[in-house]
Amino acid sequence: MAGQSETFCNQPLRFSIPTRDARGRLVRLDEVLAEILAAHAYPPLIEKTLAEALVLTALLGASLKEKGSQLTLQTQTEKGAIRLLACDYKDGALRGYAQFDPATVAALPDDSTLLGIFGKGYLAITFDRMKPAIEGGGRYQGIVPLEGDTLADAAANYFVQSEQIPTLIRVAVDHVNGRCVAGGLLVQHLPEGEEGRERLHVRLDHPEWEHVEIIASTIARAELADPSLPLEEIVWRLFHEEQEVRIEQGHPLSKGCRCDPVHIRDVIAKFPAEDRADMADDAGDIVVDCEFCSRRFPVSLASFNN
């Protein structure tokens, strides 16, 4: 394995195993996760579920290399404790929030599965790539049922069903020194021809993929969520017997709520004056709530007359 350098939390790690036609990503969220969760007083079950969703968003978003590209992960449900869960990633900026029914959540056990938390629903994953369409750019969305025990299971099904890529995803959420820490591993099979040549048919039972999947499955939850364990060390523990493993640091992650008073005012200014008047409260302010950071932005009607 080339190079062993210290890896800190909140910075994804990409790796590839050329002789096995496999690639992967690792991420661990600590300080960034604490900042995002601090905006809302989530019950433990909701906190754990949102933390898992944020790890998945970071794992998927880390594949985007073009500046301005965005990955959005969102659940759509009919009934359940969580009515809406939304996360996105853009240029290393990560954000997310969950809307839930407190009474329903209070009645659920801590080890509830997807069905218990969401009821019947779907997981939507949207890629917005900032490059020409002929090179795979533009918007692409895949929607799969919320099936399995965890969001990681549903996300793995997305890759199998929507992109026909054999994928293993593991996510762990734990509390370390009084705060939530979460980590995740994503490993995929890339058949010969993936890079620059016609892609061959993907086989879930491909012998190279079976080998990588078995090894990757041995990852322990404690390893993924341990902030003192460098991500490079996890790759080494799993794949040190391979002929070659290449690693690459991903874009450092940060809390990424993009609400901005100037931008909000510019958006409101595009509405006709009569519509703005209807939006205003008794004090003459149009108040915009940001669900991601739990902040309110009042914009005075009088400011549009200047």
Rank of each mutant, 00 (worst) to 15 (best):
M1S: 12
G3D: 14
G3R: 14
G3M: 08
S5I: 15
T7D: 14
F8P: 03
C9P: 03
N10C: 02
N10I: 01
P12F: 02
P12D: 02
F15L: 07
F15K: 06
F15H: 09
R23F: 07
G24P: 05
L26N: 07
V27H: 03
V27E: 03
L29S: 05
E35N: 13
I36W: 09
L37I: 15
A39S: 09
A39I: 03
H40I: 14
H40M: 09
P43L: 13
I46K: 03
E52L: 06
V55P: 05
A58V: 02
A58T: 03
L59I: 00
L59T: 00
L60F: 00
G61Y: 00
K65A: 04
E66N: 02
K67Y: 03
G68Q: 03
L73I: 01
Q74S: 02
K79Y: 11
G80M: 11
G80L: 13
D88C: 00
K90E: 14
A93S: 07
A103W: 10
A107V: 05
I117H: 07
F118A: 04
A124Y: 02
I125T: 04
T126S: 12
D128G: 01
D128Q: 10
A133N: 10
E135S: 13
G136I: 05
R139M: 08
Y140N: 05
Q141D: 08
G142H: 08
G142L: 06
I143H: 14
V144E: 15
V144Y: 15
L146S: 14
E147P: 07
G148C: 02
L151H: 03
L151I: 02
A152N: 00
D153A: 08
N157V: 07
S162Y: 09
Q164H: 15
I165H: 07
I169Y: 00
D174I: 01
G178V: 08
G178I: 06
G178N: 11
R179H: 14
V181W: 09
G184K: 02
L185K: 03
V187P: 00
Q188E: 13
L190Q: 13
E192P: 05
G193H: 12
G193F: 12
E195D: 15
R197S: 14
E198L: 14
E208G: 07
E213W: 12
S217D: 10
T218F: 07
T218A: 10
A220G: 04
L224W: 04
P227S: 08
S228V: 06
P230T: 04
L231N: 11
E232A: 09
I234E: 04
I234L: 08
V235S: 12
H240N: 04
E242G: 01
R246K: 15
E248Y: 05
E248L: 13
G250R: 11
G250S: 14
P252I: 05
P252D: 04
L253C: 11
K255Q: 09
G256C: 02
C257Y: 01
R258P: 00
C259P: 01
H263Q: 10
R265L: 06
R265C: 06
P272D: 09
E274I: 11
D275A: 08
M279L: 15
D281T: 06
G284W: 09
D285W: 10
V288L: 12
D289L: 15
F292Y: 12
R295M: 12
R296N: 15
F297D: 11
P298H: 15
V299K: 10
S300H: 15
S300F: 12
N305I: 05
N306W: 11
